[in-house]
Simulated assay, not measured.
Amino acid sequence: MFRRTFIGAIAATTVLALAACGGGNDDPLGGSSGAGGGSAPDKVDSLTVGSANFAESQLLAEIYAQALEAKGIKVNRKLNIGARELYMAAIQDKSVDLLPEYTGATLVYFKKDATENEAEAVYKAIPGALPKGLEVLDKSAAADEDAIVVTPETAAKYSLKSIGDLKAVGKTLVAGGGPEFKTRTAGLAGMKDKYGVEFKEFKTLDAGGPLSLKALKDNTIQVTQFFTTQSAIKDNKLVVLEDPEHIHLPNNILPLIRTDHKSPDVASTLNAVQAKLTTDGLTDLVTRVEVKKESADAVAKDWLSKNPLS
C-alpha cells in the first residue's frame, strides 16, 4: 500500500538514519511499540503528517490529518515527499511525525532478511524491527499489494501465469516502472533472486502511473509493477502474475508514528480510521483521485463524513 524514487545521493543519509534497532513490546493503546520507543505523551497539540509520492498515500495522509484536526489537533502537511527511502528518512530525522504505511513493505525496509509472509505474522514482526522512537498502530483490513503485471497479449504470447514463467523469456523483454522497482525485493532484485528472472533492459518511468501504463500498452515495455487498489489493472485487463515465492508480502495499511507524538487521542483517532478502511472502499477512493481527478483532500473529507469515527 506500497509508487512505493530512490535517489542515490541520499543513500548514505538513509543508512545512517537506520541506526539503533532492537526488540519491541505490546502497547496497551492498540498497535505495537518499536524498540526503546520511550514514553508516549499524554497530549499532543500538533504534529506533521507526511506521505509518499503517489495518490493513495496522499489520500490516506489526508484522511489521517483531517481526522486528527477534527479532534482539535493542529496538523502540518508534508505530502508527496518521495519514495520510501526518502519518507522513512524524514520520519527518522523528525521532519515528519506520522506516515501512512504498509505492513510488508515496512517490515522488509527495516529487516531485509524477514521470512514472515502471512498477514498477522508480518504485522507482529514489525515492532522488533523498528528503530528507537518509531511505532505502528493498528493494521487495517484494507490492503494494497504489489503486483507484477503484463498485458493479455504478452501473457498469451509467452504463456505467462507466474513470475517464474518470465525466466525463460526475460532477457528478450523490457521491464519498466519507478526507479525503486529496479532495486527492491518486491521488484527486479527479488525477481532475480527468487525466480532467476533477468531482463534485456529497464526503463525508468513512474511507479504504477500513466507513463508505465502507456509504455505497457504501447509495448515499449512488457513488464511493470502496479498495485492492487488501482483500477488500471481491471480497466485494462492486465494480467497479474502469480507470486509463489512471496517477493510481495501482505501490505495492510497502518500508521507509522513517532512515539513522542503518540498521545492517547492521536492513537485512538487513527485506530478508529483503520477500523473503517476496507480494500474495496480504498480502491474506490483511489479511483476517484487517480482516474476521476478529484482532489485528495476533498475525497478524504467526503469519506470521513460518511464514516464517522465517534
Rank of each mutant, 00 (worst) to 15 (best):
residue 148 I to E: 04
residue 110 F to D: 04
residue 117 N to F: 12
residue 159 S to W: 10
residue 143 A to W: 00
residue 103 T to M: 03
residue 92 Q to A: 07
residue 157 K to L: 05
residue 151 T to L: 11
residue 96 V to N: 03
residue 118 E to G: 12
residue 123 Y to P: 01
residue 150 V to F: 04
residue 115 T to A: 15
residue 132 K to H: 13
residue 90 A to C: 13
residue 158 Y to I: 04
residue 116 E to T: 05
residue 87 Y to T: 04
residue 92 Q to P: 02
residue 99 L to E: 00
residue 118 E to C: 09
residue 84 R to N: 10
residue 122 V to F: 03
residue 84 R to C: 09
residue 105 A to E: 06
residue 148 I to F: 06
residue 134 L to R: 03
residue 113 D to A: 15
residue 99 L to N: 08
residue 151 T to A: 13
residue 106 T to S: 06
residue 89 A to L: 11
residue 138 D to A: 12
residue 99 L to P: 00
residue 156 A to S: 14
residue 102 Y to V: 08
residue 158 Y to F: 06
residue 89 A to N: 07
residue 99 L to H: 01
residue 93 D to L: 14
residue 125 A to R: 02
residue 138 D to L: 03
residue 153 E to I: 14
residue 131 P to L: 08
residue 154 T to C: 08
residue 98 L to S: 02
residue 101 E to F: 10
residue 84 R to M: 08
residue 102 Y to D: 02
residue 142 A to W: 06
residue 96 V to F: 04
residue 150 V to R: 00
residue 109 Y to H: 10
residue 113 D to C: 10
residue 145 E to S: 08
residue 103 T to V: 13
residue 121 A to C: 00
residue 88 M to H: 04
residue 97 D to Q: 07
residue 139 K to T: 13
residue 154 T to A: 09
residue 151 T to S: 09
residue 85 E to F: 09
residue 152 P to Y: 15
residue 147 A to D: 01
residue 124 K to N: 09
residue 132 K to G: 07
residue 141 A to T: 15
residue 118 E to R: 11
residue 119 A to D: 02
residue 145 E to D: 14
residue 113 D to F: 09
residue 88 M to N: 03
residue 97 D to H: 05
residue 137 L to N: 00
residue 135 E to Q: 13
residue 112 K to D: 12
residue 137 L to E: 01
residue 155 A to Y: 07
residue 135 E to F: 05
residue 114 A to R: 08
residue 120 E to P: 05
residue 159 S to A: 14
residue 100 P to C: 12
residue 124 K to V: 04
residue 147 A to W: 05
residue 148 I to Q: 01
residue 133 G to A: 13
residue 145 E to Q: 13
residue 111 K to F: 12
residue 151 T to P: 08
residue 118 E to D: 15
residue 127 P to A: 03
residue 126 I to C: 03
residue 125 A to W: 00
residue 110 F to L: 09
residue 104 G to D: 03
residue 114 A to E: 05
residue 107 L to G: 00
residue 84 R to E: 07
residue 146 D to N: 01
residue 110 F to R: 04
residue 156 A to N: 12
residue 101 E to R: 05
residue 121 A to N: 10
residue 96 V to C: 05
residue 113 D to N: 12
residue 124 K to H: 06
residue 87 Y to P: 02
residue 87 Y to G: 01
residue 142 A to L: 08
residue 99 L to I: 12
residue 117 N to K: 14
residue 90 A to Q: 10
residue 138 D to W: 09
residue 136 V to W: 05
residue 88 M to A: 03
residue 95 S to A: 10
residue 137 L to D: 02
residue 136 V to A: 14
residue 147 A to G: 04
residue 129 A to G: 07
residue 156 A to M: 11
residue 154 T to R: 06
residue 87 Y to A: 11
residue 144 D to C: 06
residue 149 V to I: 15
residue 100 P to L: 14
residue 95 S to K: 07
residue 151 T to D: 14
residue 89 A to H: 02
residue 98 L to A: 08
residue 94 K to F: 08
residue 156 A to G: 11
residue 103 T to F: 02
residue 125 A to H: 00
residue 111 K to E: 14
residue 145 E to I: 09
residue 96 V to A: 02
residue 160 L to M: 15
residue 119 A to Q: 12
residue 140 S to E: 10
residue 90 A to S: 11
residue 155 A to G: 11
residue 142 A to P: 11
residue 134 L to A: 01
residue 139 K to N: 15
residue 152 P to S: 13
residue 160 L to R: 07
residue 128 G to Y: 02
residue 94 K to E: 09
residue 131 P to N: 14
residue 93 D to V: 15
